[in-house]
């Protein structure tokens, strides 16, 4: 799985990155949409959105949360463990090997990071999927960390914001992964019963088991522009039905038009927008 997502990563993210470093090696990079050469410090100041074509460049979970939350009073919560190899799964490589490779590639122990902090001084819990960790796939540990985040929100009566980007349920844990959809959805329902806001932010791309649980169950569903979100991937639909897909199929704009999401929000507007919505809700 490592290979295919490495291919779609922007080239500057492919180099080994030290944990928490948001400044990539090299000062210039190409936008993978318009090919313009961009000055990295400027790009970072622009929330990693291309200054020429407005393309939302893929970023890591930690960078994402650092950008989203206020700089002060941040604390990482939830377990700091890797996935568990329930099935002694082996394809062309062992699952355990894939896990340690993913850790090296992404600098994370698992495909989700949870941080409590504040958003324009409003206390919140926020989670972000790490796409570089096995395509952001959800296995037992991702499910567990998500559940722990919800439990923390419930206990402290805090809103919870989750930035999803994921290829879906993780094949290597098979049914245990599938069950994480039910496990996480049950806890979102618990938040709902407790009348606490759960905001889902959809980041390119989200498919399968994560789309059909965590991503679609927000009280508010927000997507970044041009994010691809669906249950079945476009290639599978094309091959199964032998049809070509309509222009813009499964993009945020398509989702908005078909009523699946509330709004498309530019990355730079996420902070004020989510803050504005949360301050209108009574929940504490």
């Amino acid at each position: 799985m490592t290979n295919w997502f490495e291919k779609i990563l922007p080239s500057f993210l492919k180099k080994d990155q030290k944990k928490k470093s948001s400044i990539p090696l090299g000062l210039w990079k190409n936008c993978n949409s318009c090919n313009s050469i961009l000055y990295v410090p400027e790009l970072e100041a622009n929330s990693f959105v291309c200054t020429k074509c407005d393309h939302h460049i893929r970023i890591g979970a930690r960078t994402r949360l650092e950008m989203f939350l206020d700089p002060e009073n941040k604390e990482e919560i939830s377990s700091n463990k890797s996935g568990y190899d329930w099935l002694k799964f082996k394809d062309t490589k062992r699952y355990k090997t894939r896990l340690s490779e993913a850790e090296t590639t992404s600098g994370e122990k698992e495909a989700i990071v949870v941080i409590k902090g504040s958003l324009l001084k409003l206390p919140v819990v926020a989670a972000a999927f790490e796409f570089r960790f096995m395509g952001g796939s959800m296995g037992s540990m991702v499910g567990q960390k998500f559940v722990e985040a919800v439990e923390y929100s419930l206990k402290n009566r805090l809103p919870f914001i989750c930035f999803s980007t994921s290829g879906g349920a993780r094949m290597q844990e098979s049914l245990v992964s599938l069950y994480q959809m039910a496990r996480t959805s049950a806890f979102i329902e618990k938040m709902s019963k407790a009348k606490l806001p759960y905001i889902s932010v959809m980041i390119d791309p989200i498919y399968g088991g994560v789309a059909a649980s965590i991503a679609m169950l927000g009280d508010i569903n927000i997507a970044e522009p041009k994010a691809l979100v669906g249950f079945t991937g476009p290639r599978v639909i094309e091959q199964t039905l032998n049809v070509s897909l309509p222009e813009g199929f499964q993009k945020s704009e398509f989702l908005l038009e078909h009523g699946a999401i509330d709004m498309i929000i530019h990355r730079k507007e996420l902070r004020p927008t989510i803050h504005r919505l949360l301050t209108k809700f009574e929940y504490s």
Binding site: A212, T232, H258, A260
Partner: peptide, 14 residues
Amino acid sequence: EERGQSEAIARNLS
């Protein structure tokens, strides 16, 4: 997909 396959499944889970 147009009618929200992911949402329909997710909704039943919750």
